[in-house]
Design a binder for these strands. Structure first.
Lengths: 341, 341
DNA sequence: TTGAAAGCGCTAACAA
DNA sequence: TTGTTAGCGCTTTCAA
C-alpha cells in the first residue's frame, strides 16, 4: 500500500529559503505577514515563491500551530437524506459562508456508528442529531468547537440553532381550523428526528387548543420518503370518515399525496386541503400550488457557521452557550380552502 | 489571532506509549496494524488508548506518510448552482462513495479566481470546469491525482467522465421529428458550460440530419435559471410562427416553460410539446408528466471516485488517462404528442 | 531584522 | 518483536 516518496520531492519552505538566501524563519515570516522583514528580503522571498510555485503545506501549518481552518459538516445519513430538500439547503448555507470566511468545508455523511476522527478539524457543525448522539458527546468531551443545527439539544452543554417546528405546526392547524376544518389529519416525518416529533406535537397541541379531539387514525407515520407518503395517503383516503384537510411533514411528501389524491379523483383543494412543510420550489409547479411552511434553513446554516467561527477564534470556554429558535412562516398558496359540507 | 497552546496538551502517541510502557513505534504499529506486535503489548497499548481516549492526529499521519485520504470535490459556483438538481446529484454520488471507501470529502465551491491550496489533499474531482481551467492546470502541474467530471476535456492530459449530451440531444430531436414536429425550438442552458454547448450542438445536428433548416429565433439562450427560462418562453410564445415543440436544457426550466404556457392558455402537449433534461423528480408532479433525458449523474460521480481512488493508490504516472462518455436515456412521459395541423 | 533550534505528532528505516 | 532516530514542513521562541 504505502509507497516510498516519489523521487521528485515537494518543494518546501527550505527550497524557498535557499533560493532567496534567507533562513526558513524569514520565509515563514513573509508567508504569515508576521514580524517585520526587510523589504529587500521580502521581495527576494516572494520572487522565490513565485519561481518555485511554492505553496505552503497546510498540513504542516496546522500541525505546527495547532489551529485548523477546516470545519466539518456532519450530516446523518438516513434513508433518502439525499433526496431531501433539507440537505441541499444546509449544504448551501454552510458552503457559501465557509467560502466567504475562507474556511475549508469537510462534508461528512455519517451513519450512527462510524466514529468520526475530529483531529485536524477546527470546528464541527452537526446538521441534526439522529442516531449519532454519541459522536456529539465525544466531540464535546474533546473540547472541539461545535454547534448543532436543526435540533434543539436541551440536555447537553452545546450551542444549537433550530427551527421552531412546533409553533409553525400549530399555526398550520390554526389556519386550517380558521378555514373551518375539523377533520384534520397529519402525515408525519421520521419520528426519529426531532423536527418530525415537534411537528407532530405542534399538530396535537393545535388540535387541543381548538378542542378538537385527537384521532389515532388521523396520524399517519412515515420515514419522510415518497413511497411511505403514498401508502399513508392511500390509508387516509380510505378512512370511512375521510379528513377534509391534511398537514404533511414535508413538501415532497405533500406532492405525492396530491398526486395520489388526483389519481383517486379526490380534488385538491375542493375535497381535500393540503399543507406541506419546507417551501420546496417543486411545490410551485404542480396543478395546484402548495400551501406550505417556509423555514429559514439557509439562514440557520449560515448563522451556525458565523457562530462556530466565533467559537473557533475565541476558544470554546470563552463563548457562552446559546440555544435559539428561528421562526417559520406560513406561505399560503392554492391548496387549501374551506371544507365542502 | 494566534493563541498559545491551551494548558491541557492534547494527548499524543507519547502518552499512550508511556502508559503502556512501550515505545511509540510499538504504539504506531498497533494503530496501523503493521508489523507484528506481541499480543501482550498490543493489549496494553489498546487499553492505554482506551483509557486516554486517544485519537491519532490525522494531520501528523498525513504529514509523516505524505499520503492523504482526503479528496476534494470542486464545484464551480455559478449563479444558481445550488438550485440545480445537478449539484446535489453529484454531491450525493461522491458523498456516498467516499464514505464507503473511507475517504474524507472536502467540498469546495469555487469561483473562477480564488486559488485552491491543494496541499494536504490526496486527490481532486472537478465537477465541471467553467471558468476555473487555470485551477485545473495548476493541479495537473503539481501532479496531484485528479479527475474531471461532466466535462470532456480534450486538450489536457487528464482523465474525465462526461455525459454524452450531444447524442442525447440528437435523440430528443429524432423523437420530436418522429412525432411529426418540424418547428422545434431550443432553450439553451448557460453556454459557458460544455453541457449546454453540447446540447445545443446536438439540437442543431439533429435538425440538420432531418434537413430541417435552423432558425435563429428558435434558439433561446439562458443561464439555466428559472427567471431566464420564463423570459425565453415568453419570447418564444410570441413568435409569429410559434414552434410546436421545444427542447429545454433542464427540467427545472422546462417546468417553468410549462407553467408559463399554461398561463398563456397554450396547452401542453396539445399546443406545445416539451422535452426537458435531467430527469429531476419534480418533473413528475406537474399537471403533465415531463418527457426528459435521464443522465446518470450519480453513477458518473461514483465512477469518478472509484477511478480517482485507483490513481491515488497507484500513483498518477502508473494509471493511463482515460476519457469516457456515459450514455443518457430518453424518458418518455406525457408532455409530447404529434403537432396539431 | 535575522537565524538556530526546539517542537507539533506521527511513520518507517535501521539496529538490536 | 521492539526501540532509537531521522525525518515530514512548518511555527515560534530565544538569542544575536
Amino acid at each position: 500500500m504505502r509507497r516510498r516518496k516519489e523521487p521528485s520531492r515537494n518543494i518546501s519552505i527550505v527550497d524557498v529559503a535557499r533560493l532567496a538566501k534567507v533562513s526558513i524563519s524569514t520565509v515563514s515570516r513573509v508567508i504569515n505577514k508576521s514580524a517585520s522583514v526587510k523589504e529587500q528580503s521580502r521581495k527576494r522571498v516572494l520572487e522565490a515563491i513565485e519561481r518555485l510555485k511554492y505553496r505552503p503545506s497546510v498540513l504542516a501549518q496546522r500541525l505546527a500551530t495547532g489551529k485548523s481552518n477546516v470545519i466539518a459538516l456532519i450530516i446523518p445519513r438516513y434513508e433518502g437524506i439525499f433526496y431531501s430538500f433539507y440537505a441541499l439547503e444546509i449544504i448551501r448555507g454552510v458552503g457559501t459562508l465557509t467560502a466567504a470566511l475562507k474556511l475549508d468545508l469537510l462534508l461528512h455523511l455519517t451513519d450512527a456508528y462510524t466514529s468520526f476522527n475530529a483531529s485536524g478539524v477546527g470546528g464541527i457543525i452537526f446538521a441534526d442529531i439522529i442516531q449519532n448522539r454519541k459522536q456529539l458527546e465525544e466531540v464535546l468531551e474533546l473540547g472541539i468547537p461545535c454547534i448543532v443545527i436543526n435540533n434543539y439539544v436541551k440536555d447537553l452543554e452545546v450551542s444549537c440553532i433550530a427551527i421552531d417546528n412546533q409553533k409553525a405546526s400549530e399555526q398550520v392547524v390554526d389556519y386550517l381550523v380558521g378555514l373551518g376544518h375539523r377533520r384534520i389529519a397529519h402525515i408525519t416525518g421520521d419520528l426519529l428526528t426531532q423536527a418530525a416529533q415537534d411537528r407532530l406535537e405542534g399538530y396535537t397541541n393545535g388540535l387541543k387548543k381548538h378542542n378538537i379531539p385527537l384521532r389515532e387514525e388521523y396520524i399517519l407515520k412515515t420515514d419522510y420518503s415518497r413511497g411511505q407518503a403514498r401508502q399513508a395517503a392511500e390509508k387516509m383516503l380510505e378512512l370511512k370518515e375521510r379528513p377534509t384537510a391534511v398537514f404533511v411533514a414535508s413538501d415532497s411528501m405533500a406532492l405525492e399525496v396530491m398526486a395520489l389524491a388526483q389519481e383517486r379523483r379526490v380534488f385538491v383543494p375542493r375535497d381535500l386541503s393540503v399543507v406541506g412543510f419546507d417551501d420546496n420550489p417543486s411545490g410551485l409547479y404542480g396543478p395546484v400550488a402548495l400551501t406550505t411552511v417556509r423555514q429559514p434553513l439557509v439562514k440557520m446554516a449560515q448563522d451556525a457557521v458565523k457562530e462556530l467561527n466565533v467559537i473557533m477564534n475565541m476558544g470554546v470556554k470563552n463563548v457562552p452557550i446559546r440555544k435559539k429558535y428561528f421562526p417559520c412562516e406560513l406561505v399560503i398558496r392554492d391548496s387549501c380552502q374551506p371544507p365542502q359540507q
